[in-house]
Design a protein around this nucleic acid. Structure first.
Lengths: 106, 106
DNA sequence: TTAATCTATAACCAGAAGGTTATTGATTGA
DNA sequence: TCAATCAATAACCTTCTGGTTATAGATTAA
């Protein structure tokens, strides 16, 4: 019953986490240290957010010595785009039906 | 600092709430009773979810006697669409920059 | 080798979130 | 008028979430 979209929506719901993802989208690959430097939370907190983003498929990580580089995986946003188009699609289709009905009433 | 998108993302993060919104998109206006009948939670729980959806601008309500009818307000999804296009846009632009760089290296 | 650095994990805590039942207020039907 | 129905609110409880500090493991620099 728990939809496949659940993880995606839940992951993006947190503002801090979304901000990290946005930064990776804007500025490209970054280390945990770099991300932590500009975040207002501790390094472990950043690591936890990154783990959640990774679990949702929204980021990839790459090990390089003792550093971990993270980058955004924008293709993971696809289900979000699909969902919104579905919702607007449903609405549009109902709107069309109403329009048809009104036409037939002439 | 809390982004304007926060409420929208947070509201859509809960699966039950998203399911209610989806139903309103698919099937159009419904009463609280109708929504409760098919949900697996109590009427007060449904009412609470509707209040949150309303607060996020995702639904409108209409009073009719002792019934309240709710309907989806799909235009409220616009910021979500904007956000995803921004993210993919940022990525695309960085990709283009990389492509430029590679071209110049020839 | 030893000290410093980077990141992840463990253990913990406070507050938020989502559910429940009970109840209220308003409206409708008998 | 009085009982029943509809939806919102109140009060409460449990679980989840996001933060913290402390620490461990791995790598690098001295």
């Amino acid at each position: 019953m728990p939809n496949a979209n659940d993880a995606l929506f839940k992951t993006l719901a947190d503002p801090t986490r979304r901000a990290i993802f946005e930064r990776l989208c804007r500025e490209g690959e970054q280390t945990v240290g770099a991300l932590t430097a500009r975040a207002k939370i501790s390094q472990p907190a950043v690591s936890k957010h990154l783990a959640i983003l990774k679990h949702a498929g929204l980021v990839f990580d790459r090990q390089d010595g003792r550093q971990t580089h993270y980058r955004a995986h924008i293709a993971a946003l696809a289900p979000l785009i699909d969902w919104t188009s579905q919702m607007t699609g449903f609405w549009q289709s109902r709107f069309d039906q109403l329009e048809d009905l009104l036409k037939r009433m002439d």
